[in-house]
Amino acid sequence: MKTQGKVLKYGDNVDTDVIIPARYLNTSDKKELASHCMEDIDKEFVHKVQAGDIMVAGYNFGCGSSREHAPIALKESGISLVIARSFARIFYRNSINIGLAILECSEAVDGISEGDSVEADFDSGVIYNKTTGKSFQAQPFPEFIQKLLKAGGLVAAIQSGEIK
């Protein structure tokens, strides 16, 4: 699976409270959640994000609350992939479970700037910065997680009998 898009870049410790503030958690409506995505860290995010865009960030992305509303809001906003130096563990598993693509790669974070045009292949973990012409290699997922992703997330994996 491949994606390509324009990069929106943020710093370290982007927490789930800024991805989707708790005051909007009185709903689980995807579109409504997406309409407030990143609001407390970047009010312009919802206006500038376009389908397919790639979010790039530093260490510990998605730290804090376990709210699955956070990866849901990002995915519904149009974000096709998050590349970070590291992910907080609950956000990491939530993303895999709901099918939001994520890649861990510090070199790519160093070599990608806001607004760059980037291409990525989830299967191989290869990230290509079209703006600068540089390539980066992210760690591929372990086999079990690749199986989950191929099935389309955890619910689909259970439905198809991958997990009993």
Binding site: S66, E68, I90, N97
Partner: peptide, 30 residues
Amino acid sequence: GADSHTCTYGALGAFSTGVGSTDMACGMAT
């Protein structure tokens, strides 16, 4: 628990950890 502070029960010598809603759903089912 679909709440990040589920790790609290480690105080009692249990393994407990926060997960998301999909994990909770699959946990409830399986």
